[in-house]
Amino acid sequence: MNLSPKWIPLLKKAGLEAIHWSSVGHSNAPDYEILEYAKANGYVIFTHDLDFGDLLAAGKMACPSVIQIRTQDVTPDNLGRLVVSAIHQFTNQLEKGALITVDEKKLRARILPINNVPHIHS
């Protein structure tokens, strides 16, 4: 809910299946409900909310994968190419379970469950 639905056409244009939470769930749904929905339906969560990484770590969860943006300008115009590039670069990790962090200077992947597993940087 914290990213614009304008991301959906950009992701679909890049050949990715995408839905916005507002089309399947309540705007005030707790994060764990979104996690469970993504896990049950094989989705990757794309968010600006850092709480999802904390929930994955606290629950030692192996899925769903989460892509989190860590920058102030989270518009598709600003980050669209970088996000699509990150998705393609880390496809294998996302399929197995990963937390991908995207900011304007670097990409980082952490394999799930989050323990003391080394990071993959780009």
Rank of each mutant, 00 (worst) to 15 (best):
S4T: 12
W7Q: 15
I8A: 12
L11R: 05
L11P: 04
K12V: 13
L16W: 01
E17T: 12
H20Y: 06
S22G: 15
H26D: 12
Y32D: 13
E33K: 14
I34D: 03
Y37P: 01
Y37H: 15
A38T: 05
K39Y: 12
G42F: 06
V44E: 07
T47M: 02
D51T: 02
G53S: 06
D54V: 08
D54S: 11
L56K: 01
L56W: 03
A58V: 04
G59I: 02
G59Q: 11
G59P: 03
A62Y: 05
C63Q: 09
C63V: 07
P64E: 10
I67S: 07
Q68M: 14
Q68V: 13
I69A: 10
V74M: 04
V74N: 06
T75F: 04
P76E: 09
P76D: 11
N78F: 12
L79R: 03
L79H: 05
L79G: 05
L79V: 07
L82A: 11
T91E: 14
K96P: 02
A98Y: 02
A98M: 06
T101D: 07
V102D: 05
D103N: 14
E104K: 12
K106S: 09
R108D: 05
R108N: 09
R110E: 13
I111P: 00
I114Y: 00
I114W: 00
N115E: 15
N116L: 10
V117L: 15
H119Q: 13
I120A: 10
H121P: 01
